[in-house]
């Protein structure tokens, strides 16, 4: 199962090799993931009654969540303490960031001064300043004190207070006047898990014939992708779609669904033209009197042009 990547670039819409996230699943894929989860949990509900239980060993992986609702619930479910935790975490992060920035700028300044001294330009400035000695005495201590404050801030806990003062904040840490960095690291909030609904309400329900055929081919190791480009329901690849050409254009049918011969001819001709076979498939329904009542599986027929006529 590989889904369909549909994140695209405006300038390369047709270059689907470049498509990236997000990933869209076909209804059949989503359904299969959900069903496998249910099977693993051993739940037996109404939906499962018409699904053959042959995949019990498979690991279940998915649950259906309605994105906007789940998001809203999760935000609502955050308690005040949670919020405070997250907020203080953000503040700490921000402070670290600011310290790092400060340090960097100081270093740059020092490097610039060193450079200037080395090239001899530095002397002209203090020379001019030495004319008024008050200026000089004011200038140097101010610069040094700032440096000391920063060094303290890196080392100790009290650094934050001083930092706040250097950043010209009136009140130290009441949070009301703080500004926050917008791009938040979501990993910090990840601890608050989503509350998942016990019974998923929006289980995708693809048409039965399609789902059965999809499930059958999937169990045989075929990779299915949507078949719009070849006028069918699925395109079946024998492996990774990036590595293999597809083999079959799949059309699923009910056991007693009538199919026009023109569809068969068209499918067969198109399939042969693109080096594939056209496949029609459906869940077999044998008569009760039939000799093998246990064979209640999907039956497939592959059509190709015969090469003449």
């Amino acid at each position: 199962m590989c889904g369909t990547l549909f994140g695209t670039l405006p300038q390369a819409q047709q270059q689907n090799i470049f498509l990236g996230l997000p990933l869209e699943l076909m209804r059949e894929e989503a359904r299969l993931l959900v069903d496998q989860r249910e099977l693993q949990w051993g739940k037996k509900n109404i939906i499962l009654d018409w699904i053959a239980g042959s995949n019990r060993s498979l690991k279940g992986v998915a649950t259906i969540v309605e994105d906007s609702l789940a998001h809203r619930d999760a935000v609502k479910a955050l308690s005040e303490t949670d919020k405070a935790d997250i907020l203080s975490l953000k503040i700490q992060e921000q402070d670290k960031l600011m310290l790092a920035n400060r340090e960097e700028s100081i270093k740059r300044k020092e490097a610039a001064i060193e450079n200037a001294k080395a090239s001899g330009k530095w002397k002209t400035k203090p020379a001019r300043a030495s004319e008024s000695s008050i200026d000089k005495s004011k200038e140097t201590p101010l610069f040094e004190s700032t440096l000391d404050a920063i060094v303290d801030g890196v080392g100790g806990e009290g650094g934050r207070e001083e930092l706040a003062s250097t950043a010209q904040r009136t009140s130290a840490d009441d949070g009301s006047q703080r500004q926050y960095v917008i791009p938040m690291a979501s990993s910090a909030i990840g601890l608050h898990s989503l509350r998942l609904p016990r019974e998923a309400e929006n289980i995708p329900s693809p048409p039965d014939a399609r789902y059965q055929v999809y499930k059958y081919l999937q169990s045989l190791g075929y990779f299915m992708s949507p078949g719009l480009r070849f006028g069918c329901q699925f395109v079946a690849y024998p492996g990774d779609p990036l590595r293999f050409h597809s083999h079959f254009l799949v059309k699923s049918l009910q056991w007693d669904e009538e199919l026009s011969m023109l569809d068969l001819v068209g499918g067969g001709r198109l399939g042969t033209g693109v080096k594939k076979a056209w496949m029609m498939a459906g869940l077999e329904q044998r008569d009760i009197e039939a000799d093998r009542p246990e064979s209640h599986g999907v039956r497939t027929f592959c059509v190709e042009w015969a090469g003449f006529g």
Binding site: P238, H245, H247, F248, G268, T272, K275, F301, C302
Partner: peptide, 16 residues
């Protein structure tokens, strides 16, 4: 009259 080969079951197409 046009002729098509139909297989019972999954059979790999010839040119693939």
């Amino acid at each position: 009259v046009v002729y098509y080969i139909m297989h019972d079951g999954i059979v790999k197409p010839r040119q693939n």
